[in-house]
Simulated assay, not measured.
Amino acid sequence: MIDYSKILSQKVVSLAPSGIRKFFDIANEMEDVISLGVGEPDFKTPWVIRQAGIHTLERGRTWYSSNAGLSELRKEISSYLDRRFSLQYDPQEEIFITVGGSEGIDMCIRSMVEPGDEVLVVEPCFVSYAPIVTVSGGTVVPIPTCEKDDFRLTPEALKSHITEKTKLLVLPFPNNPTGGIMHREDLEAIAEVLRDTNIMVLSDEIYAELTYGGKHVSIASIEGMRERTIVINGFSKTYAMTGWRLGYAAGPKEIIKQMLKLHQFAIMCAPTTSQYAAVCATKECDHDIEEMAAEYDTRRRYLVDALRKMGLSCFEPKGAFYAFPNISCTGMTSDEFCNTLLQEEHVAVVPGTAFGASGEGFVRISYCYSVNHLMEAMKRMERFVKRHTKGENK
C-alpha cells in the first residue's frame, strides 16, 4: 500500500479548505434554503456580450490566442482603465489576460514571493491570498482591520507590521467580505508609508466598478505607486461574466514579464471565446455597468436598513456586493450563528472567520440576489435574531 502522507506536499496538505463551502454543501442537502452566501451576480451576461461569443464560435475562431491574450483585447482594456480609472498601461508590455482574477493573484504572488519573504494581507479578505502565499513558501502576516475604522487599512496598522522581510502588500479594496473601500486620502497615507521601501503592492480591484457614492480610486494612480503596484481586475463582477473565467493583470513590464512566463507554462492562454466576448464588453457595455451598479445600490440600502432594524450593528458598505453585520449581540460565535441560522431558519450566510481571524463576531451576507429574495431572508433572519439576542425572551 502506498503511504500518500509521504508523497503529498505537506504545504498543500496543511491548507484548510475554504470556509465558505461547507455551509453551502449542507444547504444543498436541505429544502427551502435561501442562500445569501455566494458572490455570484444574479444578472445574466449582457446579451450583446453573449452574442459576440456565439458569433465567434459560429465563425470557428476557437484557436489559441497569444500567451498574453488577444492584442485587441489588451488594447481595449488599456482604453477602459484610462477611461474609467485614469490608469495608463502599455497594452503590449504592461497588460496580460488571465483565467479569472484568481489566476492573476496566483501569478503575481508566485512571481515575487520566495521562502523567508513576508506578505502583508489585509483582513478580513478573500480566501485565496493566504494559501497561495503559503504554497509559494512565503509567510502570511495578517493586518486586521476594524469596524470602527470602516474596515480600512490605516497607515499606523501598516507601519506596525512592516519588517525587513516584508516583500508584498495585498490590498483588497473594494473589499470582500466587508464592503469597505479606501478613499484617495486613505491611499495617499498608505503610499507615504511605502514610498521609501521596496515593498510591492498587489491591488485586487475586481469590485472597482461596484463603488457607491463616488468613483473607485486605484492606489496605482497615487504618485509614486504605479511602479510598485500590480492591478488585478476582471470581467466576472463588472459584466456578470463569472463563468467566462476572464481577468487581467496590469503593472510594470518587468513584473508582468515574469507573471506571463508562469502563465505560459501553467495555462498557455485564457479561453479565446471569452476573450472575443470581452472585447465587446469593454467597447460597448459601460451603460450595463451603470445599470447593474444602480440595482446593487438599491439592494445594498435595503439590506443595511433591514439588518439595523432587526438590532444588528452594520457599518455602511460602500463597495462590492456584501454586508458584514456584527452579530455579537446574540452571544454566538460567527460559526455558531451561521450553523444555527441555517438549521432553524434555512438561511445560509458565511461566518466572518472564513475570511480571517479578525472576522470573528461578523457574518458576510451577499446582496447579489433579487429584492424579493432578500426580503424573505431578512424576515427569517429577524425572527432568528429576536429569538437569540441576549436579554430577549427565548
Rank of each mutant, 00 (worst) to 15 (best):
E188M: 13
S111L: 06
D117A: 04
I181Y: 01
P177V: 08
K148Y: 10
K148R: 13
V121C: 02
T163S: 15
Y129K: 09
S111T: 12
E185S: 14
N175I: 07
L158E: 06
H161G: 05
S160L: 10
S128P: 02
I109N: 02
K148W: 07
E185H: 14
I132T: 14
A191M: 09
V122L: 04
M112A: 06
T134W: 03
V193N: 00
N175V: 07
P174E: 09
T134Y: 02
V170N: 01
P115A: 08
V99F: 02
P172C: 08
T154Y: 05
T145D: 10
D117C: 13
V113S: 01
G179W: 05
F96N: 04
V140K: 12
I143P: 00
I162M: 13
L171M: 14
D186M: 11
P142D: 10
R184E: 15
G180T: 04
G101A: 14
G180C: 04
F126D: 12
G101I: 01
P177D: 10
G180I: 04
G116I: 12
I132W: 00
L187A: 05
D186S: 07
E118Q: 15
T98F: 01
D150N: 15
T163A: 08
I97K: 01
S136E: 06
C146K: 13
D117W: 06
T178M: 05
I143C: 00
R152V: 13
V141D: 03
M112Q: 15
I162A: 10
F126K: 09
E114P: 00
V170Q: 00
N176D: 13
P177L: 10
T166L: 09
F96Q: 05
R110N: 13
V121F: 01
G180V: 04
I95F: 00
M182R: 08
A130G: 03
F151C: 02
T197N: 03
E147I: 07
I95R: 01
C146I: 03
T178L: 02
V193D: 00
E123I: 03
G100N: 07
C108W: 06
I181C: 09
A191R: 12
V127N: 03
K165D: 14
P174M: 10
P155G: 11
V140E: 04
G180E: 05
V193L: 06
P174S: 08
G116A: 08
E147K: 13
G116L: 09
D117H: 14
P155I: 10
E185I: 11
L158W: 11
I190K: 00
A189I: 05
I181T: 15
L194Q: 06
N175D: 13
G138H: 02
N175P: 00
K167T: 07
A157K: 11
A130D: 09
D186E: 11
T163F: 03
S111A: 15
G116Q: 03
C108K: 02
A157F: 05
F173H: 12
F151H: 14
P131E: 10
M107T: 11
P155F: 09
V122Y: 03
S128K: 12
A130C: 07
T178G: 05
G138T: 09
L158T: 08
P174W: 07
E118C: 02
I132D: 04
I95P: 00
I105V: 15
V121R: 04
K159Q: 15
I95Q: 04
L169A: 12
P177G: 06
